[in-house]
C-alpha cells in the first residue's frame, strides 16, 4: 500500500501524456508565480513612486528643478517619465523662434505625453496576459490529463477478469493529480490577474489624470505669457 500510492510512484507510473501534462502545469505554476511576485512588487513600487511624485509635483516646486531632479534619479519610470517627456517637448518647442503657434506647442507636448503614457501602460500591463492565459487554460490542461488518465485506467480494467475498485483506484488517483495541479496553477493566477489588472488600471488612470492636469498647466503658461 505504502509504495503503491506514494505521490512519486503515482506520477512515475502515469501515462507519458499525463506526465507531460503534469510537467507543463508545474512549469506554468512556477512561471506564473514568478509573474505574480514580480508584478506585485512592481505595482506596489509604481503606486509608491506615483504618490511620491504627485506629492513632489504639487508641493509648488519649480518645474525646471523637478525636471532635473527626475533626470538625476536615474530611473525614469512611471509618472516622472510622462512629466519629463511633456516638459522636454514643451521647452523644445517653446524655445524655438517666435513664429510657433501656441496650439502647435500644446499639440506636440500632448502627443509626446501620450507616447510616454502608452509606454507606461504597456509596462504596467506586462506579464498580465500570461497570468490570464494560465488562469483560463491550466484547468483545461489538467482536465485533459485527468480524462486521459481515467480513460487508460478503464481501458486497463476492460481486460481484467475480476474487476475491483483497487484495480482502477491508483489510475484514477494518478489522473486526478493532473486536475489538482491545474487548479493549483489556475487559482492564484486568476486572483493575481484580477487584482493586478485592477490596480494597473487605477495607476494608469492616475497617470492620465496627471497628464491632463500637467498639460492644462502648460497651456496656462504658454497662453499667459
Amino acid at each position: 500500500m505504502n509504495d503503491h500510492l506514494s505521490l512519486w510512484s503515482l506520477i512515475a507510473n502515469a501515462t507519458l501524456l499525463v506526465q507531460f501534462v503534469m510537467l507543463l502545469l508545474f512549469f506554468a505554476s512556477i512561471v506564473s508565480w514568478v509573474m505574480i511576485v514580480q508584478r506585485g512588487l512592481y505595482l506596489r513600487n509604481a503606486a509608491h513612486t506615483l504618490r511620491k511624485f504627485e506629492d513632489n509635483f504639487w508641493s509648488g516646486i519649480d518645474l525646471n528643478q523637478l525636471y532635473h531632479d527626475c533626470g538625476a534619479q536615474g530611473s525614469v519610470e512611471g509618472l516622472s517619465s510622462v512629466f519629463r517627456a511633456g516638459f522636454r517637448e514643451f521647452n523644445r518647442l517653446a524655445q524655438q523662434k517666435s513664429h510657433v503657434d501656441p496650439d502647435t506647442v500644446m499639440e506636440g507636448t500632448e502627443r509626446s505625453m501620450r507616447v510616454a503614457l502608452s509606454r507606461e501602460e504597456e509596462r504596467l500591463n506586462r506579464n498580465l496576459p500570461f497570468l490570464a492565459s494560465v488562469a483560463s487554460v491550466s484547468p483545461y490542461i489538467g482536465l485533459f490529463g485527468t480524462v486521459w488518465g481515467i480513460m487508460n485506467a478503464f481501458r486497463g480494467l476492460a481486460t481484467v477478469q475480476q474487476a475491483t475498485l483497487a484495480t482502477v483506484a491508483p489510475g484514477i488517483s494518478e489522473a486526478l493529480i493532473a486536475t489538482a495541479m491545474g487548479l493549483f496553477a489556475a487559482i492564484p493566477a486568476v486572483l493575481a490577474y484580477n487584482r493586478y489588472s485592477a490596480s494597473a488600471d487605477s495607476i494608469y488612470s492616475s497617470y492620465e489624470t496627471f497628464a491632463e492636469e500637467f498639460s492644462s498647466i502648460l497651456h496656462r503658461r504658454i497662453h499667459g505669457d
Partner: peptide, 24 residues
C-alpha cells in the same frame, strides 16, 4: 525584482512539493 520573484516562486513550489510528499 525578477530574481526575488523567481526565488520566491521556487521556494513556494519546493515547499508545496515537500508538504505533499510528507503528508501524502
Amino acid at each position: 525584482t525578477y530574481t526575488v520573484a523567481i526565488l520566491v516562486s521556487l521556494l513556494l513550489h519546493a515547499g508545496v512539493v515537500m508538504l505533499m510528499v510528507w503528508h501524502w
